[in-house]
Design a protein around this nucleic acid. Structure first.
Lengths: 352, 352
DNA sequence: CTTTGTTGCACAATCGATGGTGCAAGAACT
DNA sequence: AGTTCTTGCACCATCGATTGTGCAACAAAG
């Protein structure tokens, strides 16, 4: 009906139609009108007009003037993985709940790319940045700091901004203990039967390994160095580590701990090249949860990090604007084999 | 060293320092300076200054003036799933490759939320919108159209904008045929042995079902209606469908086709409540690929949609600014059981 | 009837970049 | 020397909102 042809209505359009000034229209539509002592009736009238003309504010103009964009960023290593994608899903729900707009980007665990990505987000004047699993949190801190951008670390800690991370030490212990207890007392695990694959020299890996080694010593009475193979985070390197092991030993370890589902995917690649029988009597623990992985043909014990808990804490820390580099540990959850947990997907309304 | 204390440098700052006018600085830094006949030397000088002061343009101001933001949107149903998260990953690479900024959001397969999300993106003046798996593509079309926003549909077609979708009919046939051929000739599948679970009344499901039924008739000589159970896309409804089936029949079908990995997750929930033996001699086909699902304790044949191919096509269509609602079919790939394909993750550099 | 307050709004500067237009200085040409 | 180009840039309006300030009009107080 209206002349709402192609271009969006602005406060100036509404100003002309309503006979009020642009500033009045602006105040009414952004909620500051009481402070400006604008009559209820005027406000009412303008609000109706806005609705009728489907007015929505131009966020760029708003942002330019107020230097707040309404954008909240989440920087991930990658999307394509259950842990990070559920982080994205949960993050989005939080941000939308606050009336802001989520913007999720990945930076491939590359310090340079991390910084450039952050710069790029900053050029859009994002209001806050959640840094998840960054390789170089302190480098990112500098970039953010210089731009006056509030930020917290998630999953991997930095030394200059608050960090919310999984309790990797405890998680490592829980998972390792669960692996060990999976074996009956009559054919118990020897220290050299239990390996750890994956991870690199980051805080998370180190803590998990610390937990792994400690509990091995406690429960198995030993903890040889050669049982630790840090392969980095690439699936292919992980596969090659398993191939090498297999070639060397003629078999797989009776049990092993994989540092993440991405490393576990490397093991899948190994599996693809070997027959079913290779994987009997084997127990795997994985520091990540993936529902399909939980049902593989051998017992897979998993750790599910408390994504909801971590993000809730992260938003809380962000609000209180603490800039002290405290570290908050969030306890993860042990997931028994053959377990299908519910997740963010279950929030979907399923209409047909 | 410089006074680059807290606030970012603007063209005005550089203008003062360089002695050139803001418009000259602007032209130099945005590349239009040749058109404006600015001396090479001047340009050089200003570029150096910009670098020294770490100048980056304020995208909001740019966007406000030019009504182009450099943001490119991808609207997904959900993040938390291998198909969509790999869509996000690939999308991001494309967009970044074009020097733009990706913005990926999900809308839970809810038509209302889809529209509101699009409106919200529009208020940021995004330049293009890729609509993936939308429940109501035509509703979204209207919203975009009204704002003059270029858009294409992916995964689920609309009737008013170009669409790039998986060849669901062919994929349905391929997958069904592969399931059937998994059974040896001496104990072949009967028509009533092969079911289909999941999906709703959308284009993708309909086409897959059409392929499923046709090939059943061709190869098995029959195709009873009761073998189709459309359960929607929620894991829980899918689980309940399997529970009901199991209670009714006292067993599972010898083989079934699940419409998506999300429905497959519903089956996992069923599995969690039943012992291993329940799942012997069973074959599953799933219209989606997940590496872990491929290694479950029974043969799982999967379809991998050609995410890279679909997006490449989508960007191409977007560029050519076709607005005719053509439908482009992209052939998916059949994935044999126990297969670990490489994906976007493999592009990561893995440094340690 | 003046003085002092309050109410309700309009005006105009501003955020940082873009792009049309104008204009001086020097070159080229007659 | 006078006219016409060309070169190289400066000026200024503009995008759509926000916000500090000013000021009528009317009410209340003295």
């Amino acid at each position: 009906m209206k002349e709402n042809g192609r271009k969006k209505a602005t406060i100036y359009d509404l100003s002309l139609i309503s006979g009020s000034s642009p500033s009045t229209v602006s105040a009414v539509l952004n909620g500051t009108w009481r402070k400006r002592r604008i009559k209820e009736a005027t406000a009412e009238f303008i609000r109706d007009l806005a609705e009728k003309h489907q007015y929505t504010a131009n966020r760029q103009a708003q942002g330019l003037r107020s230097s707040r964009s309404g954008l909240v960023g989440l920087l991930l290593p990658v999307h394509d993985n259950r842990y990070f994608s559920s982080m994205a899903q949960t993050f989005e729900a939080h941000v939308r709940g606050m009336g802001q707009c989520p913007i999720v980007v990945s930076a491939s665990r590359d310090p340079q790319e991390e910084r450039e990505t952050a710069e790029s987000l900053i050029s859009y004047s994002i209001d806050e940045l959640f840094i998840c699993g960054a390789t170089d949190p302190d480098g990112l801190h500098e970039v953010c700091e210089k731009a006056g951008l509030k930020h917290v670390n998630i999953d991997l800690p930095g030394t200059k901004a608050p960090s919310i991370i999984s309790d990797n030490y405890e998680g490592g212990r829980m998972l390792t203990e669960a692996i060990i207890r999976q074996f009956p007392a009559d054919r118990p695990l020897a220290p050299s039967d239990l390996y750890l694959f994956g991870g690199r020299n980051d805080h998370a890996s180190r803590e998990r390994i610390r937990g792994f080694r400690e509990i091995k010593r406690e429960l198995l009475g030993g903890d040889p160095d050669f049982c630790i193979e840090t392969t980095g985070y690439s699936p292919n390197n992980t596969r090659m580590a398993f191939e090498a092991f297999y070639k060397r030993e003629g078999r797989l370890p009776r049990a092993f701990f994989v540092n993440s589902s991405i490393n576990f995917e490397g093991f899948l690649r190994f599996m693809a090249g070997h027959p079913h029988e290779t994987f009997r009597d084997m127990v795997v623990g994985c520091y990540d949860y993936d529902p399909f992985a939980s049902f593989l043909p051998f017992p897979v014990i998993m750790i599910r990090q408390d994504v909801e808990g971590m993000l809730t804490k992260a938003f809380e820390v962000m609000q209180h604007a603490r800039t002290t580099p405290d570290i908050h540990l969030i306890r993860p959850e042990l997931v028994a084999p053959r377990t299908a947990l519910t997740g963010p997907l279950d929030a979907l309304k399923d209409i047909d």
